[in-house]
Amino acid sequence: MSEKVIDISNLNAFYGELHILQNVSLHACKGEVVSLLGRNGAGKTTLLKSVFGIGPRRKGSIRINGTETTRLPPHKIAKLGLAYCPEERGIFADLTVAENMYLPPALRQGGLGPDEIDQMFPNLRERWKTGGAKLSGGEQQMLSIARILRAGADILLLDEPSEGLAPAIIKQIAQLVVRLKARGMTILLVEQNLSFAKVMSDRYYVIDSGIIRNEFDRAQVLDDPGVVQRYLSL
C-alpha cells in the first residue's frame, strides 16, 4: 500500500454539547480519490472542517503527510498541501475572478501556472474581470478549485462539488476531478451523488449520524451500487 496522505483515527468532534463525529477513522493514500458518502446532516461537512480545524472542537488524531495537525492552526495546515473547497464554493462576491484567483498565496512549488489554468479552466479567463457574484454555479465551482491548485495544493477536500449544478456541468466537474487524480493529487470527496462519485472514486466510506458505517472499494460499488445507495436513500 502506498503512503497515507490523510490519516484520521478516532476523531470526535463537538459543537457545544453535541457530539457530532464519533470515533471516525479513515484514510486516503497518495493519488487516491476517496469518497465520503452520507445523507444531509450525517457529519460529512463537519468532518472536512475538522480536518482543517475550522469547525468544531475535536479530539483524536489527524495526520497529513505524517504530520499530526490537531494542534496546528489552519494556515499552517494549508502549508502541508491541503486545500478545501466548501459546498457553497466560497467565492467572494465583491472580488473579481482575478482577485478570487490570486487570493490564496502560492504556498508550495508545483502550483498551476497561468497557461495550465487557461488550459484546464478555459471559461475563467473570459470572465477574468467579472465579479464573483455574477458567475454561474459551475463557474464558481471551477474557480474554487482553480485557485487552490494555483496555490500549490495537492491534497483536496471537495465538499459536494456536484451540488446544485446542471448535468452537463456535473460531467465537466467529474472530468476535471479525473484529470486531477491523473496528476497524482489525493482527493477526499464528500458527496451524496453516487453517480458522480463513482466516476473517479477508488474507495468509499459511508457515514451516518457521525459514525462511519461501512467501507467499500471501487469494484464492490461498480458491481452493485445498491450496497451504497441504500445508505443514501431516505
Partner: peptide, 13 residues
C-alpha cells in the same frame, strides 16, 4: 467575510 475559509488558504488571519 470568511475568516475560516481565508485561513485555509494559508493566511494567518
Amino acid at each position: 467575510e470568511r475568516p475560516d475559509l481565508v485561513a485555509t488558504f494559508g493566511i494567518n488571519v
